[in-house]
Amino acid sequence: MIASIFIAKLRKYQNGFALLSLLFLSAGLYTGLVVSPPDYYQGEVVRIMYIHVPFAEAAMAAYTVLFAGSLWYLWKREPVIDNMCHAAAGIGILFTSVALITGSIWAKPTWNTWWTWDPRLVSFAILLLILIGYLMLRSFLDDPEKEARYSAVLVIIGFVDLPIVHFSVEWWRTLHQPLSISTRGVSIASSMLYPLSFMSIGLYLLLAYLIMVRTQMLYLEHLLEAKQGRLLSEVHSS
């Protein structure tokens, strides 16, 4: 019964999330691309940041949802929570890829390289690999209950591992090569702060909306599968 209440709640609120997200994203894009001035050092390239940073934040939020959902699933064994995890992982891959690609495009003119062994870059690459491994693991398991349980275990291991990856790369880098990159900006000007926070809020809302829609889709798919299975077994037994 919890599942149907949960799904009904999602259906009730999803349009609100979509509308608000649309509002914030258009405000963010307008202030970011039109109103705000080009950066003193980076020029027009800085505008990629208004896409890149919010996507990276939202990708981490997606993994946090995935982690919390996995703990919840292992505790309560509620299939609809597993559907939510499945949804969050797929959308997490999308957001992580966008963050990595926009980061690369920004890094080329700014740092003059597509890729560098920066702790944040490596952690995001590992995050992407974990999420892809997660979906692959799911696709290879046939029993839905086992699929949910095993993939939840993987998510928890990955969540514990990511900070260690981050620290080990940080150590490794600081010992091996001088820091060629200083973190950007001393403090952020308010003309940059507005588009950044609008985009951030907008993408968090978009993330929530996408997870809500995808969760319902996966829930219905599983329901359909179960009903088809029941129909088939009825045909066979009669």
Binding site: V122, I126, F140, Y150, V169
Partner: peptide, 22 residues
């Protein structure tokens, strides 16, 4: 985790290697 699934030989390193980076 992987012993009972199809494509066990592929899945095991895909899961292990990224997490063993440290």
């Amino acid at each position: 985790l992987t012993v009972q699934i199809r494509a066990r030989e592929v899945m095991f390193p895909i899961l292990l290697l990224p997490l063993a980076v440290p």
